[in-house]
Structure formats: structure tokens, C-alpha cells
Design a protein around this nucleic acid. Structure first.
Lengths: 137, 137
DNA sequence: TTTGTAGTTTATAATTATTCTAAACTACAA
DNA sequence: TTGTAGTTTAGAATAATTATAAACTACAAA
């Protein structure tokens, strides 16, 4: 269970003022048993369900972007044309079901790579993600 | 070099009438030395550069969708919020440069996987894609 | 404390990508 | 030829996101 203090520290440590709105959003994102795969829309709905004070959509967009830049959440690769985020920032992989457009985490140890290519000149590898697309048997 | 005949056959074999527009689009997509990573926007620009007769944007959207369903092109996973396609339909992987939003093909043999998880019940693996995100050294 | 200010929130407008609509057009089978 | 289902098209509609600019607020310094 996340204390308010921890959230405030998390925000402060990444140079973000701990405003009322950011604290509500952070609590919603990080105070969960399982990691959360979300879009701005689903996050917005989750917030509205839990608390009665309304947070502007623009703020949710701003905050999600700020959290992303701070490394508190990460953007997920999809073939949707909306931004998809994940509160699990550890390197990990996903199953993707194109029928339901649902993502499921795959633990990092579940995938073992034996060989990966060298990055192009001047670049280094930031992250490696495996997406396993599914279909009905 | 693709002959018009081949393109007509390709279209016919997937139940698509070989219209003037589809032939122009197919030529643009498939008559290339390297595989083509594109969005509807970049395809539209490429078509306008090459030929003087204008094809409606709606037709390009329709055709890209039809080609995708027919398996002539595939959709690429990105963190952009626009649809990204690839004329390389063989299973393969990508480098992704978030700075330039550019994708580069990685040959399938360049990545070797030792262990992959079992798919969830009732599902089988349709495809496995590795995306290696890059950053400046 | 108060106060100045940079950072933040907000409603709303603007933009961008995509899909829908319905009328005109066309490939092609009969 | 001709009927019709399939296709194209311009433009409207929708959806997701970003920009704008005014009001608000956290907080450092006086």
C-alpha cells in the first residue's frame, strides 16, 4: 500500500510538484496489485470511478506525458492508434491478442535470447521488447 | 521488376478487382528494391511524386486496409499513434529509433530465441516480433 | 507571514489521423 | 449491351491528441 508520502517523494524526486491532481493520478496508477495497462481514456474512467473531484482531461494527458518522461510509466508498442501505457517499467514482454486488443505481461525470464544484432553506428540499445501476437487455436 | 500482369494476378488471387488505382498503389508498394515502411501519409506522397493522376486519400485508406486483410502487407507495432505498415510480410524484427521515429528491418536470423512462453489456453502463437529501441550513445 | 513567480491546471479551440456516407463511376458476368 | 455488385471519391463526421491562454497554486525568498 502506497503512502501519500511515498508518492510525494516519487514526484519530487523527478522534479514534479506534488499537486493534488498528480497525487490522485499517481495513486491510481501505482497503488495496484497488478501492473496496469492503460490509455488516457481508461485512466480517466478509473479516476472518475474512484474519486468525485474531476480532473481535466488535459491534465491527465499532461501528467501521463510527465510520468512517461520521468520514467514512472512506459509507452507500449501496439498497432492501435492510441497511446497505450504500462505501469510496469521493468523490461518485460507482452502477449498481444489482436482480436480483443488485449495485452498481457510476460515475465522477462520467460523469454531467453541467444543472439541479438549490433545496433547501428552511434546508437546503443535502450530496450528490447518481444511481442507475441496470438490467434485462436 | 514487377510486370503489370503479376500485379493484376496478385490482386485477383486475393479477390480484389484490379482497378487502375489499386494497380498504381500496388506498383508503388511492391515494385521496390528494399521493403517499404510506410504510413498512409508517406504512401500518398510517394504516389503523388511518381504519377500525375491523383488518387483519393479515402481510396488509399481502403486499399491499404484491403491489402492488409489479404496479407500483402502487415501492420507494424509502434508507439506512434498512426498506422504503420510494412511491405515485408515475412516474420522479421525491427530497430526503432524513438528520436527519428524510424524503423529498420532486422533479418530474422539476426535474432535467436532460446526460450519462449506457452501461449494462454485456447490461443496459439501467430507471430513473434522483437523491437529493439535505440538511443544515442 | 506575505509576495513574486515559475510551474500547473483548466476549458476550449485546433490539429491530426482515420472512418463514414452517399453519390458517381467501373469491371465484368450474363 | 447492360445490370449490378464492387469501387472510388469528396467531403462530413469522429476520435485521439496537442495547443492556447487565462486562472490558479506551490513554494522560495523577503
Amino acid at each position: 500500500m502506497y503512502q501519500k508520502k511515498e508518492i510525494v517523494n516519487k514526484l519530487r524526486s523527478s522534479g514534479l510538484r506534488p499537486t493534488k491532481q498528480r497525487i490522485v493520478i499517481a495513486k491510481n496508477l501505482f497503488d495496484r496489485k497488478k501492473t496496469f495497462h492503460f490509455t488516457v481514456e481508461t485512466l480517466n474512467i478509473a479516476i472518475h470511478r474512484k474519486c468525485n473531484e474531476r480532473i481535466s482531461l488535459a491534465t491527465i494527458y499532461n501528467t501521463v506525458e510527465a510520468f512517461k518522461r520521468a520514467g514512472h510509466i512506459r509507452e507500449i508498442l501496439t498497432s492501435n492508434n492510441k497511446n497505450y501505457y504500462d505501469t510496469n517499467i521493468k523490461s518485460h514482454h507482452h502477449f498481444y491478442d489482436p482480436d480483443t486488443k488485449e495485452l498481457t505481461d510476460i515475465d522477462y525470464q520467460e523469454v531467453v535470447l541467444n543472439k541479438i544484432p549490433n545496433p547501428p553506428k552511434g546508437k546503443k540499445i535502450k530496450d528490447l521488447e518481444v511481442v507475441i501476437s496470438l490467434q485462436k487455436k
